[in-house]
């Protein structure tokens, strides 16, 4: 996940994604979600599978991303979809290395996640460990029909056999680089930056 404290931005550096780019990418992902839901919809579902869709954000920035995706899905389809968040801190396998972190909310829709299509939403896909922790958390929270993964940026360097089902943008990076996603809700502006190292 991206860090919340950002170094002063290099004036010459152009963002990888501008605010307009982020909006466009989110719209595209929303369309893809609608298509996927429809393809997986049970027979006779008048909502095109959206009734069963739950977008679950991984805090910090996955949570507002999930809400945005839900809003765009509703705008395009006319159907409201459920949104939740699942905090993965207590499921992380690197607690001993990183020191304690404050917890963030875990909120599931009233209808729960059993037998539904859960799409985990995160800002950056990197090692895959956050997603693994989220999968472990989901297992304790219920039994979805299927779990898929949506990320705004996939920067590579996976350490686990995990891939995203919906990717806003694939970004080749070196390990020493940092990918920073900033969102209006958490950081006051929408943009994606790549800093440090050589690509």
């Amino acid at each position: 996940m991206a860090s919340s404290s950002l170094p002063a931005r290099d004036a010459a550096q152009a963002p990888l994604l501008s605010a307009a780019d982020v909006a466009r990418v989110v719209d595209r992902m929303a369309h893809q979600l609608i298509e996927r839901a429809a393809s997986l919809a049970p027979e006779g579902d008048a909502t095109g599978g959206l009734r069963d869709l739950v977008l679950v954000g991984i805090p910090t920035r996955g949570a507002p991303l999930a809400r945005r995706l839900a809003a765009r899905v509703e705008a395009f389809s006319g159907t409201a979809v459920d949104v939740g968040t699942v905090d993965i801190t207590l499921y992380r396998d690197d607690l001993r290395r990183r020191g304690v972190r404050a917890l963030e909310p875990t909120v599931l829709p009233a209808a729960g996640i059993d037998d539904r299509l859960v799409v985990l939403v995160d800002d950056v896909l990197f090692s895959g460990r956050s997603v693994r922790a989220a999968l472990d958390a989901l297992r304790d929270l219920g039994r979805p029909r299927a779990v898929q993964l949506a990320v705004l940026v996939d920067r590579g360097h996976r350490e686990l056999p995990i891939r995203a089902d919906f990717v806003g943008k694939n970004v080749p990076t070196s390990r020493t680089q940092q990918v920073k996603v900033r969102l209006q809700e958490t950081d006051g502006a929408d943009e994606v930056l790549v800093t440090g190292g050589a690509a």
């Binding site: 499921y91 963030e104 909310p105 472990d136 304790d140 929270l141």
Partner: peptide, 24 residues
């Protein structure tokens, strides 16, 4: 405050769950 906030998040995370266990 961190202790109280953490307890609140744990409460919320475990509310209504069948599996009241975390691997932490």
């Amino acid at each position: 405050t961190l202790v109280l906030d953490t307890a609140a998040q744990i409460d919320q995370a475990l509310a209504g769950r069948e599996v009241k266990k975390l691997p932490t």
